[in-house]
Amino acid sequence: MRKSIFILIGIILLISNASALSRSGYDWTHKSDIKSPGSSHWNPNDAYADSEKLQSNASVLRWSGYDWTLKSGIKGPGSNYWNPNNTYVDSDGKLHLEINYKDGHWNCAELDSVKNFKYGRYTWVVSSQSLNLDKNVVLGLFTYTDDDHEIDIESGQWGNSSSDHLHFTCQPDQTVTFVSPTSSYINATDVTYTFDWQPTYIYYTARASNGKIIANWYCTNKKDIPKVKAKVMMNLWLQHSIPPSNDKPVEVIISSFHWSSVKHKIHIQ
């Protein structure tokens, strides 16, 4: 009997010290104590599943199959206030970006991908009206490494109500504009925005819900086309921190984002 008790105690201690981590369908043991390589001290608490870390971080959001960090504090563009609470996913899986007045100032929204991306097709479907925002509001759908390596689709008037509303940009030097204030697409909903980023070109499109092309641009200036990995970003912000001209909150709803590394054939229209 005494021998059986000792065996049972040994089994319990072995299980409690195994420090196993379940990840991707397998169990992994944690290294502990002082061991090679490097005669380092190994702490099993320093290993964890990424999903658990993300779930415990209120400033990280899961959407469209990717993890996104939410901007906070006072930062550019526009020296705006950024509030993580202004970005959320509804019960239908749609992403909401909001600008609103709270705590004595206007708050904007931005989310940046945890993953780094490079060449491929980037596609957003914006279900709400996105081409006729307030003249002081900008919606950005883009990739960003730094100011010299940036691919932008931006909807905004930059404070000028008579300007075109849609901008395709390849930083640092090239921008083209589309969608005049009198365009028949000015109040379109369910617009699909896409750019194909390849080493020798970037092809931008905006398509109406009926498949008609609202705007497209074929950028072939190899000097400006980024050659480095970048974050995918989405933001809704105020030009120069100037409130909406009607002092009303703003909301943009994005149905989905998709990235494909497959090189697609392009059909310029």
Rank of each mutant, 00 (worst) to 15 (best):
F178V: 08
V138A: 02
F168N: 00
S24N: 14
Y185P: 02
V138Q: 09
Y193H: 02
H41V: 13
L111G: 07
K35V: 11
Y26P: 00
E154C: 01
T175W: 07
Q129Y: 02
K31S: 13
K31E: 10
D196G: 04
L131M: 11
N132R: 06
T143F: 00
T29N: 13
N132P: 02
K231L: 09
L141I: 03
L70S: 05
H240E: 14
G93C: 12
L61F: 03
I242R: 11
V252K: 00
V137Y: 02
K263W: 06
G38Y: 12
F178G: 03
Y201D: 11
L70V: 04
W197I: 02
N86A: 07
Q129G: 10
Y26W: 08
S24W: 07
A109W: 04
I266R: 06
T205Y: 02
W158Q: 00
N187C: 04
M234S: 08
T220H: 04
Y119A: 06
R2T: 13
R62S: 15
C108K: 03
D173V: 05
N43E: 05
C108G: 08
N83C: 12
H105M: 08
A49E: 13
L111V: 09
R23K: 08
S51M: 07
K71F: 02
V176N: 09
S184T: 15
A230L: 05
W106R: 08
V137A: 07
N210G: 11
N100K: 15
T175F: 03
D90H: 11
L236N: 03
N100G: 13
I151D: 00
S180I: 00
S261W: 01
I253E: 11
L13S: 07
R62I: 04
E251V: 12
W259G: 03
I74L: 13
K212V: 11
Y185F: 15
T189E: 09
H267N: 15
D147I: 05
Y66L: 07
K94T: 07
N210Q: 11
D46Y: 13
H167K: 11
P243A: 10
I34D: 10
T175L: 12
F257G: 02
L54V: 06
L111Y: 08
D112I: 15
I11Y: 06
D33K: 13
S155R: 01
D196Y: 09
F142A: 01
N57Y: 01
L111I: 12
G10I: 10
P243L: 04
H105K: 15
S241M: 07
H149G: 03
S79T: 14
V137Q: 01
S91F: 09
W63D: 01
I266P: 02
H41Q: 13
T182A: 14
K118T: 08
N235M: 08
H30F: 07
K102I: 08
I34M: 11
W28S: 03
T177K: 14
K53C: 05
Q129R: 14
Y88C: 03
S32W: 13
T194N: 03
H30M: 14
N116Y: 14
D148W: 06
T200G: 07
H165G: 01
M1R: 09
I266W: 05
G76A: 10
E98W: 00
A18I: 09
G78F: 04
I253P: 06
